[in-house]
Simulated assay, not measured.
Amino acid sequence: MTRFTAAKALVAVFAVLLTGYAFVVGPHLAGEQQRRRAAAVDAALPPTADIPSSGPGTAADDDAPRGTFPDRGEVFVGIMTGEGLHDLSEAADFARRTGHRPQVYQFAQDWAHDRFDAERIDDVARRGMMPVVAWEPWDHREEAEEPQLRGEQPDYRLSRIADGVFDAYIRAWAEGVASLDYPVGIRFAHEMNGYWYPWCEQSNNNRPGDYVRAWRHVHRIFERAGADNAVWVWSPNVHYANATPYERLYPGDAYVDWVGLSGYYGTVGKENYQSFDRIFSASEARLRRLTDKPLVITEVAATDAAGRKAEWITGMFRSLPRHPGVIGVVWYQAVREIDWRVTTSRDSVAAFARGVSAPRHRVPWSPYDEPRRRL
Rank of each mutant, 00 (worst) to 15 (best):
R360E: 09
D304C: 08
I338T: 14
V326P: 06
R360H: 12
D339Y: 07
F317C: 07
W331H: 09
V356N: 03
W331P: 01
S348Y: 01
P359C: 04
W312I: 02
E311H: 06
A350R: 05
S357A: 15
T314K: 10
T344W: 00
K309A: 03
F317G: 01
W340I: 04
F352P: 00
T303M: 05
A305S: 15
V326L: 11
V329P: 02
K309R: 12
D339M: 04
R318A: 15
W331M: 01
S357V: 13
R341E: 07
I313N: 00
Q333F: 14
M316W: 15
D339P: 10
E311L: 08
R360N: 10
T303K: 09
I313H: 01
R308F: 13
R336H: 14
L320F: 04
V330R: 01
A310Q: 03
Y332K: 03
V363T: 13
D347E: 15
W331T: 02
R360P: 06
S345Q: 07
V335W: 09
G325Q: 12
D347W: 04
G328C: 10
R341K: 13
S345M: 07
I338L: 14
V329L: 09
A305Y: 15
W331D: 00
G328W: 06
E337T: 11
F317Q: 03
V342G: 04
H323Q: 13
M316L: 15
P324K: 07
W312C: 00
D304L: 10
T343P: 11
A310P: 01
E311G: 00
A334L: 15
A306E: 10
R322Q: 14
A334R: 13
Y332L: 02
V342H: 01
V363W: 09
K309N: 02
D304P: 11
V335S: 08
I313W: 02
A306M: 03
V363K: 07
R318P: 03
A306R: 04
S345A: 11
R346C: 05
W340Q: 02
D339E: 10
G307F: 08
S319N: 12
R341G: 07
I327A: 09
W340Y: 10
L320P: 00
R341H: 08
T314M: 06
R308L: 15
F352K: 01
G325L: 03
R341I: 04
V329C: 02
A351E: 05
M316G: 08
P324R: 06
S348D: 01
A306Y: 03
P364R: 10
P321V: 08
R308M: 14
D347G: 06
A306P: 00
S345Y: 05
G355V: 10
V335I: 12
A350V: 03
A351N: 07
S319D: 14
